[in-house]
């Protein structure tokens, strides 16, 4: 798999994803991010290697309770669900889509700043967030030509 992905489906998802980050739409941003990750794990052996032996359960919630999503990693596979899961390793509670984007994905990931401003609150193991941050950044680098 080359560093720059050119698959049409993924490019479409990516374009939608980039549009979503211009807005405050948390639901679309998070859903697109998780699905883009899942898709990339499927098609890219190199990307999949990052979760080869990883078991992790992530819960995402918006502060207003309007959005609940979960991502689980197990034996090199990623699953995305719109539901509350049992025993997440970490729960990320975010104010809105923009803050979640800044937290996870902006060129300058503002993890501490988001926590300082209470835009993001976490419950559970912070190391899982750092690992997720790497996966998100890796995806971003793979999708960016040059």
């Amino acid at each position: 798999m080359p560093n720059f992905i050119s698959l049409d489906g993924l490019k479409t998802t990516w374009s939608r994803f980039q549009r979503s980050i211009e807005t405050e739409a948390a639901e679309e941003f998070l859903e697109l991010l998780l699905n883009a990750m899942r898709f990339m794990f499927t098609v890219s052996h190199r990307y999949r290697e990052n979760i080869k032996d990883f078991q992790g359960r992530y819960q995402f919630k918006s502060k207003d309770g309007g959005l609940t999503m979960a991502a689980t990693f197990n034996k090199g596979r990623m699953t995305v669900k719109e539901k509350v899961i049992d025993n997440p390793d970490v729960t990320i509670i975010f104010r809105d889509g923009k803050t979640l984007f800044n937290f996870l994905f902006s060129p300058r990931q503002d993890i501490l700043g988001a926590m300082l401003r209470q835009d993001i609150q976490t419950e559970g193991n912070l190391n899982y967030i750092y690992r997720f941050g790497f996966l998100a950044k890796r995806l971003q680098l793979m999708m960016t030509p040059g």
Binding site: R108, Y130, R131, G133, F134, K137, R138
Partner: peptide
């Protein structure tokens, strides 16, 4: 481990 998200960018950050 807080370095994890920027393993590939820390060398070039502003």
């Amino acid at each position: 481990l807080s370095l994890w998200p920027e393993l590939e960018t820390v060398s070039e950050r502003k």
